[in-house]
Amino acid sequence: MSAAAEKQLLRVANVRKYFAFTKGILFSRTLGHVKAVDDISFEIRAGETLGLVGESGCGKTTISRMILNLEEPTEGYILLDDEPIHGLEGEALKAYRTKVQAVFQDPWSSLNPRMTAGRIIAESLIVTKWGDKDKIAARVAELLKQVGLRPDQAQQYPHEFSGGQRQRVALAAALASSPKLIVLDEPVSALDVSIRAQMMNLLKDIQAERNVAYLLVAHDLATVRHMSDHTVVMYLGKIVEKAPTQALFDDVRHPYTKALFSAVLIARANQEDEEIVLQGEVPSPLNPPSGCRFHTRCPYVMPRCSQEEPKLRDVTPGHAVACHLFD
């Protein structure tokens, strides 16, 4: 993959997001900050998939909310096609909304129970006054076919669909405005095992057809490996490892990523070979550990880890790791 030749679609540059922890509402005092995302940079190229992996509290949801323009970064900026995405208003914001869409984890919560599937899919078309009624209806029918549903199912309400079908409706709704990027927040983890493969195949087919880029937020490494071209691993608001997916899975470097790999329970019997079982819990992002944030749980901890924060740097071209072991 020649990086220079391909066009960068989205750039996240040195983004921080601190949530003020306050007391009182009308006359509030700030008691501290939760550093949900702390100096994160990555790029997504047009038509490719970036996998964002980490456990709860690592900041992956905050990142995706900032990319969806539901949240403003405290510092740093995010660019889509070299245009900053925050501070947009009115028509410019509406235009941005047509370019970046989302599918969320829980298909039981992501569809308005009072709207038909057709109305849900048409939402962004109606908001942007994309066309008249007939034109929209034709587009909805086409989208339903594309996600493997029947056009007449536009009349059905969400409760008339199964979980897998609902997730297809959610995907059709995200595709309606022909976005360039779709944020997929755990798109298959709420689905049954036998339905997941259907959904993943569908996502891949649609990407091939439409050249849409995905930001895949997930905790399951096997899903990320299967779906994404690049992978970013996060821990407590920081990127700990970033590489092309194949390179990362062939040569895991960071101790946290190694621990995640150990934790993946592979559907294969008798595998107890060299694994890292992390002790303790993820520390609170309100008061993260000094130095390397992972040092409290790291099996390879050294004295300098608690004092000095490791920089994210390339260990091989394109494969970056933030760990003192590789200095």
């Binding site: 199964s162 897998g164 095992v193 036998s194 997941r196 493969a197 259907q198 993943m200 195949n201 891949k204 490494l221 096997a222 899903t223 490996r225 299967h226 899975f249 790999f261 993946v264 592979i266 559907a267």
Partner: peptide
């Protein structure tokens, strides 16, 4: 067989998954 085959793997090729069609 189909269930085990449909789970994405940590090794091997990353091609299309063999999905189970339909619903229970």
């Amino acid at each position: 067989r189909a269930l085990i085959a449909s789970v994405p793997k940590m090794t091997g090729t990353r091609g299309r998954l063999t999905a189970i069609d339909g619903q229970p």
